[in-house]
Design a protein around this nucleic acid. Structure first.
Lengths: 341, 341
DNA sequence: GATTAGCACTCTATAGCAGAGAGTGCTAGC
DNA sequence: GCTAGCACTCTCTGCTATAGAGTGCTAATC
């Protein structure tokens, strides 16, 4: 059976109502709505059909109906229309994001907070992946008489540091000198290239072999790991405001996911460079999120570097609003990160 | 009335039991304990005294007693004895923390996770504050045709970055050259000194004034902010396992605090360089934490740099265990960060 | 033929009540 | 000084009755 216009209309009304109230929707409620010219009995018949078609679920016989994941899918695919963000909201984003010079990391954190504030859901943002990652400089900073902090700066602004052992009583000047030497040797090389040229680089370094050895060793270790990009989470407690999470058990499950970056990152990664993705309830791979929806969007830093952000809410989230907020925030962020401030 | 030995003993037994069960403790329960040679009636009389003295509370007439904040204070001050961590636990810490070269940031995150895993409470760790903070190098990395990422590395390994505008179509080589120039000019200066010598530095730079101006401008802005050190939180959902937080409202309040670094940082900051601090329930400044206890401890990186870590749990937390875990972790972390790996 | 009014039926949520259980405080006796 | 005994208090659990929301079906209406 194809869905005729009236069924569409009724389904949309049910979803809209349920998004607002989180309470199963009865036929009378729909019937009373402005623009619906049918009695509860008629609505009931249609609802019965919609249930058979898999768009509605009934918690128990004498309750109203709630939309199924299939219904939300139809809803986002066909029923909602792009909506302009209200002037107040655009202003709000601009206010929150309009700070002059600031660290990229901080801009991103601020974006996450703004997103969660405005939607009252939970937000995720990952910094843009810079395309080619190579070493910019190496620094050795004395920490104690026989150890130093090794800091490696890559062109992504990403920094990797670790403590290494240095010969007892080494002069600070010498450490500095060695840093410079290493920087000259390694600058501009990708992490890959360094590994390949390890032997050669090592040969070129004449004095302080032992120190160099431990630096290169540390570097080698550092390069080996392919750390997942950091995911910034905003408003993780927001979901606890919704009746869906009045059960502590559920709340804990949800929050556990937010705590593990390893689970979070693939969620956003999967979205790739799609401008928008919407995953509803069970469409998410994580069972913990089977009662949530995740909407992702992208933003840009310069021409090549793309970052991803997302909003997680209950399946009955306000899709329309979230999409417009993400859309606008994407533009604001791209502006902020791609031009001066 | 002074507390005699028997009252001490009974109070300790009550606290120990309540820490385990979270259920108001009755006189029979205490009486049955090995080593207590008194009937429930006797215990009841003592309990009644202890209540009058403010050490015990009674939720309602026919419930058992629960320890008050005053009781916990006495408990940690006088009743608990330092305890050796079990061999299994020390092994566990070593296993978790025994990774070779790793970023300081990662070591700290790992420490936070280990702490929360082992105690089943929530952990906080801040990276060591390096004592003298000065600039190590400045880098400009092209992002788009008219903007670049400015990266400032300080000797703390801390990195501050921000996007700045650069003249349209500037050569990468030139950007690099300018970075070098700036690094030479600024290297070794504290943030303060730079601000003082702003004019002089600016005068020395001959070409590309406009670019320098915007770099220095960005730097100025960057230096102005005194960002709170980052607090790493581990096991934030752990507290939701305890009956104290079976109420979603309470859970939300608690988690909100963890979300705001601005509230968290002062908590640890206040501990200063004290080896241990214990704050019980209302002794915490934050009303949201009035039913929690916070134990902090310090660790060291090299000779001068001290970091702080803490455990937040319900007031009925297992103080003895938490203190031994923190103590051991402090040593492990200091070892890890101060010598090579 | 589609729509709707009417009605019996189902299921949930809530309040009220009784009984069990845990624990206390007091008193009298050891 | 300690404890056995007992009446009393308060909570928790389970049960029942009731109200309310909503449905599905049938028969009447447009």
């Amino acid at each position: 059976m194809r869905l005729d216009e009236r069924k569409f209309m009724i389904l949309k009304a049910i979803i809209d109502d349920y998004i607002q109230t989180a309470v199963p929707v009865g036929s009378r409620t729909i019937s009373r709505k402005a623009g619906v010219g049918f009695s509860p009995a008629t609505i009931r018949n249609e609802m019965s059909d919609l249930e058979e078609l898999g768009y509605l679920d009934q918690p128990h016989t004498s309750a109203g109906r709630i939309p199924s994941a299939k219904a939300y899918r139809l809803y986002v695919d066909e029923l909602i229309k792009a909506q302009q963000l209200s002037p107040e909201d655009t202003l709000r984003i601009h206010e929150h994001m309009d700070t002059r010079t600031e660290q990229v990391e901080q801009v991103i954190r601020r974006a996450a907070n703004t997103l969660s504030d405005m939607t009252q859901y939970t937000s995720l943002v990952v910094a843009p992946q810079l395309t080619s990652m190579c070493i910019n400089s190496v620094h050795l900073v004395p920490v104690s008489s026989n150890s130093a902090l090794m800091i490696v700066v890559t062109n992504a602004g990403l920094v990797k540091d670790s403590v290494i052992r240095v010969p007892e009583g080494i002069e600070n000047d010498l450490l500095y000198h060695i840093s410079q030497l290493l920087t000259v040797q390694l600058h501009g090389l990708t992490l890959m290239q360094i590994r390949q040229q390890f032997a050669k680089i090592f040969k070129d370094l004449k004095e302080n072999r032992k120190l160099f050895a431990s630096v290169l060793d540390a570097l080698e270790n550092r390069l080996a790991e392919d750390e997942p990009h950091d995911v910034v989470v905003g408003g993780s407690v927001n979901l606890l405001h919704y009746p869906e999470y009045s059960d502590v058990e559920k709340a804990r499950n949800f929050l556990s996911v937010l705590e593990s970056k390893e689970k979070l990152y693939p969620l956003l990664k999967k979205a790739g460079s799609m401008e928008f993705t919407i995953r509803i309830g069970p469409e998410n791979d994580l069972p913990e999120l089977s009662e949530c929806s995740l909407i992702t969007a992208t933003y840009h830093m310069g021409e090549h570097n793309t970052g991803t952000m997302g909003i997680i809410g209950p399946t009955r989230m306000n899709y329309t609003r979230v999409i417009s907020v993400l859309d606008f925030m994407g533009k604001a962020l791209s502006d902020l990160l791609s031009t001066d401030r």
